[in-house]
């Protein structure tokens, strides 16, 4: 492995200064679960790694509102605390089983520190209740060892087309907050990605937070990771969906369909979403939205799966994930 300096700044401004002075030769390191593998294989050879480990505020889960199920910061994991014992989505490393029904009760915007490991989100009952697709995606990523260390910010900045937590966050119109030499800026997650491994992050910018607005009452969401085996596998493709129903409990006020490995970056199907919004949530309408999402996807062949199969599976998985979000059941029992 090529040699590098491992720098551990004690404050965020110090981290930004270090990045600015090292320029392109430096890389931010959070959990290193992507970076270490890439350095070891010779794909990357940074001269300096700027670690986020000494910045405790970067590891945090904060939510407003709530329902007594944990105040701000309930995600800060305390070893020994038996959180998550009845969590949905705790399948053996994920896979098709990591799905649970879940309406998200109103009451909570969420702010996540970029260096928060996936396990903190996997274990948060509050996230499971309010942002089930995000909890399911985080629980499906890698192994427990990888989730204990690999962070949400790393998943986003690594910008893989299969990034699980990033694909789920697209459902909730998440924004990312970047801190650089010229101050702070915030942009929609969907605009952050340019291509595989490419983002709009400047070389001296640190991703500090991921922000998610309250999706509102009558919101249902879920995430389905399609893999050949259930445990510890990258997605062949993944599909997330979220619907927010209008007050009549039938009309779709807002729809989001996010896709992993169906384009060079995690994406949303604008056509499928537009088709659903303003219409009643019926199986026919969802099937049509799935059809549109499949048609407009930019799937391609790779060794993990063929384009035609991925396209076919979008048609299958969009209705399935909406079914499992509990949205149809809510409409039918309204």
């Amino acid at each position: 492995m090529a040699s590098f300096e491992f720098l551990t700044p004690q404050t965020l401004p110090e981290a930004v200064d270090l990045l600015a002075s090292w320029g392109e030769e430096a890389a931010v390191v959070a959990g290193a679960t992507d970076l270490w593998v890439n350095i070891r294989s010779g794909k990357l050879a940074p001269k300096a790694l700027v670690s986020l480990r000494a910045l405790p505020s970067m590891r945090s889960l904060r939510h407003a509102g709530g329902d007594g199920n944990g105040g701000p910061g309930d995600g800060a994991r305390t070893p020994g605390a038996a959180t998550g014992t009845t969590l949905p989505g705790g399948a053996a490393g994920g896979g098709a089983a990591s799905i649970a029904a879940g309406a998200s009760p109103s009451g909570g915007a969420l702010t996540i520190g970029a260096a928060t490991p996936h396990a903190d989100i996997e274990d948060s009952l509050w996230v499971a209740e309010h942002f089930p697709a995000l909890q399911q995606a985080c629980a499906s990523l890698g192994s427990r060892q990888v989730r204990n260390v690999g962070t949400l910010g790393g998943n986003i900045c690594n910008a893989a087309p299969c990034a699980d937590s990033a694909t789920a966050l697209m459902l909730y119109d998440a924004t990312v907050v970047l801190q650089g030499p010229d101050g702070e800026r915030e942009l929609p997650l969907g605009e952050f990605f340019i291509g595989p491994g490419q983002t709009r992050r400047g070389p001296a910018e640190v991703l500090t937070q991921i922000r998610v607005a309250d999706p509102g009452p009558r919101t249902y969401s879920g995430y389905l990771k399609h893999t050949r085996r259930k445990g510890v596998e990258l997605a062949m493709m993944s599909v997330g969906a979220r619907v927010t129903l209008a007050e009549d409990g039938l009309t779709v006020r807002r729809a989001r369909i996010s896709l992993g490995v169906c384009a060079p970056t995690p994406t949303c199907s604008a056509g499928g979403e537009l088709f659903l919004e303003g219409k009643p949530l019926t199986r026919e309408n969802v099937a049509r939205a799935a059809e549109i999402a499949a048609e407009e996807s930019r799937v391609r062949d790779s060794w993990r799966g063929k384009a035609w199969y991925r396209r076919e599976m979008i048609r299958v998985l969009v209705p399935r994930v909406i079914e499992q979000s509990g949205a149809f059941a809510a409409v039918e029992t309204r």
Partner: peptide
């Protein structure tokens, strides 16, 4: 308190 893969964990990060 958390299980980690020590092969991809930088030694310096264990400070």
């Amino acid at each position: 308190g958390a299980a980690v893969n020590s092969c991809i964990f930088p030694a310096v990060a264990a400070e």
